[in-house]
């Protein structure tokens, strides 16, 4: 379990990093927290010729919280975002989800943007970004662009970043007024990849009726699955909402796979259970 040979690049500025990425193109992988990449290298499941280590690029180590939302630089560790009171106040779903990301030692090193770029459908943060309709900011020597979550997650472990492009940051929109969030997942052990997970964003109108209800799922599809359950809930007050109908709708609108930990059927069942749980909790919070 030693990686095959690679060239290690350690740029100190964004410009240098982009220049190296432009030069190395498809042969390069970006190293930030390394919590997924290093095991892949050690198991020789990935063999990039170049590692572009961005850990010295201080300008990427940022966390900005504004009324609009939370902007996270490519070097901000999970733990920093998790512990930020401002970030939690502006978008509480971040902290709620981050607490489910592996274990504290991994969160001390792993980065939020790295997790998004890795695009693992079993990871928490891609589902959160998808639910909130956030964006990823990408840069290359050719310029910068902003990629919406729906476009960003192209497939399992596949983002729409292009060769030579670096994800420099991500933006998670703030929690709207009269809205609530909830996050829940079921994993075999504390901190494992979830067999199924769900994040909900529910808003209520001035009559305290559910005006919007969306749920994003992890581990149930090749990319984060977002379902709009507003219609199923028929704009009722939370106390009379038919959560089970929403769960049933969700179960009918996903095509789960089996793995060694969960059958496809059990995974779908869990997604339904979690749908109910997160919707109830988010609606309660929205009131």
């Amino acid at each position: 379990m030693k990686p095959p040979p690679f060239d290690h690049h350690a740029p100190e500025t964004l410009e240098e990093a982009l220049e190296v990425l432009a030069r190395t193109g498809e042969d390069a992988k970006v190293l930030a927290g390394g919590q997924s990449l290093i095991p892949l290298l050690n198991m020789r499941l990935a063999a990039p010729a170049h590692l572009v280590d961005i850990n010295r690029v201080a300008s990427l180590d940022t966390l900005e919280v504004t009324e609009e939302g939370v902007r996270i630089g490519a070097l901000a560790r999970h733990a920093r975002v998790e512990r930020s009171a401002q970030a939690a106040a502006t978008q509480p779903l971040l902290r709620a989800a981050l607490r489910h990301v592996a274990h504290p030692v991994i969160r001390n090193r792993g980065t939020v943007v790295g997790s998004l770029a890795h695009a693992d459908p079993a990871a928490e943060l891609p589902a959160v970004l998808a639910l909130l309709e956030g964006t990823v900011e990408a840069a290359s020597v050719a310029g910068r662009r902003t990629i919406g979550a729906a476009e960003f997650f192209a497939g399992p472990l596949e983002s729409s970043l292009r060769p030579g492009e670096l994800a420099t940051g991500a933006f998670f929109p703030a929690l709207p007024a009269n809205a609530g969030i909830a996050f829940a997942e079921v994993a075999r052990r504390h901190g494992d990849y979830a067999m199924a997970g769900a994040a909900a964003l529910v808003t209520v109108d001035e009559d305290q009726r559910v005006s919007s209800a969306r749920v994003a799922y992890l581990s149930v599809a090749a990319t984060p699955l977002v379902l709009d359950l507003t219609g199923v809930l028929e704009r009722r007050p939370p106390v009379t909402c038919d959560w089970a109908a929403a769960a049933a709708y969700a179960r009918d609108h996903m095509d789960t796979d089996e793995d060694i930990h969960a059958s496809a059927e059990y995974r779908r069942h869990l997604a339904g259970v979690l749908t109910e749980r997160v919707l109830r909790a988010a609606a309660q919070q929205a009131l």
């Binding site: 075999r188 930990h261 969960a262 995974r267």
Partner: peptide, 8 residues
Amino acid sequence: ISPSELYH
């Protein structure tokens, strides 16, 4: 026995 197996 796993949760998935107990479910089944």
